[in-house]
Design a protein around this nucleic acid. Structure first.
Lengths: 148, 148
DNA sequence: TTAGATGCAAAGACTTTGCGCACTT
DNA sequence: AAGTGCGCAAAGTCTTTGCATCTAA
């Protein structure tokens, strides 16, 4: 249940080496971007950010690196409804509320799903992956806007 | 809380007319396929099934018709993790449990999410869309398989 | 030195769109 | 008759892959 401590760049790269992979300019750059990015970011945006720091890194490389980081448990991705997947550093586990109307996404602590997770385990033998909870609906702001 | 009664082909097409749209061979075929299909089906599979009955109906038309049916409230679609969206007739509201390992999807009654929905409303002002609940994790069968 | 990593370009999966003709109403 | 809906083909979005080259260790 303990949240992983926030990683530094060096720790992150150390984990890459520990996984038997090499540390390269591209990986360093992707790592830096992930560390400076708040929230959930589409690969597209990550690629743009990477290009600012290292214009020669190609999109396919970023995808490959994100896959690798995910295998190493450094990064998590989620599919928030239609459209591109979003990525973020593995950190405190949380779920996502995605607004149907404005597409804003809100993070919610994993504890909100405790009761549901127990239910699903008991009733269906289903082990909820709390990293990937993404629920759609209407956010508070849009609900207000809709009434008026 | 009442579940819509299961629609017949004629009722379905009547609703299309009621919505001010025309009834065509393509729509009739898509409707028939949806009615004979159990569970959640990717557009791809629907298109194949439609082709069996009406080889001349094009894929883009099926997509257009699914959109139209969805606007009319006849069909619901959901994004179950990565990959293509799945479609099904609007019926009893339910959520989906998607296995990370074998990709099987299990339907669960909407009531399972009642408590969660209340929490989300109260804590975050978020109105859960129960039609689109898709949770990933590990299903009972795969969990067993993993242990051994 | 040498296997893993990258860039580039092409392909792939899924879905949408433009256009002129056909079919429903 | 009027105009919605359709087939076809092309484009669009997001992501993966093949291959020759380069580079970290």
């Amino acid at each position: 249940m303990s949240s992983p401590a926030p990683l530094t760049l060096d720790e992150l790269l150390a984990r890459v080496r520990a996984g038997g992979r090499r540390v390269t300019v591209a990986k360093r750059t992707v790592a830096r971007v992930l560390l400076t990015t708040t929230g959930h970011t589409r690969a597209d945006d990550l690629i743009n950010d990477v290009h600012v720091m290292a214009p020669d890194v190609s999109a396919s490389t970023v995808y490959r690196i994100l896959d690798e980081f995910e295998e190493l448990g450094l990064v998590v991705h989620a599919h928030l409804g239609s459209g591109a997947a979003v990525y973020h550093l593995a950190g405190p586990v949380h779920g996502h509320l995605v607004c149907n109307v404005c597409h804003a996404t809100t993070e919610v602590p994993s504890a909100v799903f405790d009761a549901l997770a127990q239910d699903l385990r008991h009733e269906y033998g289903f082990t909820l992956d709390r990293h990937h909870v993404a629920l759609s609906g209407v956010c508070a702001a849009c609900a207000r806007r809709r009434i008026s």
